[in-house]
Amino acid sequence: MGKYAHLYVDAAKLTLLLGVAGILISLIIGLVCALIQYYRAPVLKRIVSVYIELSRNTPLLVQLFFLYFGLPKIGIMISSEGCAVIGLSFLGGSYMAEAFRSGLEAIEKSQMESGLAIGLTHAQVMRHVIFPQALSISVPVLCANVIFLIKETSVFSAVALADLMYVAKDLIGLYYQTDEALLMLVIAYLILLLPISFVAAWLERRLRYAGFGN
């Protein structure tokens, strides 16, 4: 059984690396989109809502097929890794945007006013008053999104990336090591995802600011 363990370790590293990259970019996209929606920026707001609808209503697998097999036909060649990160970011960005947006919208407008009333600038109120509160509200959803996105990386094998699924499929197809392959697959994902899930639960409890927001 240990014979193939290193394959899984390498695959898990790849999954984690691409996943983390995609998640970080998703967070940036999400934050930018959420701010555009929060400030109701004209035109941009429209673009963001089209993006969110497209992203949320199509599967990652199809997005990847389009990026990896479709785009090269008009001369846009992107590596497997590139497609994986772009696809995951395109998908994750909309989920993160919704998480940030719901956090921002949960803060009463009067909090902004009371910050302004003591002479803080708009930017200062955002930084010291609105963001910290919005973030603590968003955290549970953000964490759920992180887990969701790591799970979504399991389709990366479809664009020829040697991820966990790819290794498992190889072992099943080539060597008929079905039991081992599947067991290792489950263990690998548990090792990847359980710690994140525990950290998420812990963060959620901690970030509630001593019970604020209940």
Binding site: Q111, S114, A117, Y209, F212
Partner: peptide, 11 residues
């Protein structure tokens, strides 16, 4: 200014 709903910063 002081508001009806206090508007302390809960965090």
């Amino acid at each position: 200014m002081v508001f009806q709903s206090y508007e302390l910063f809960p965090h």
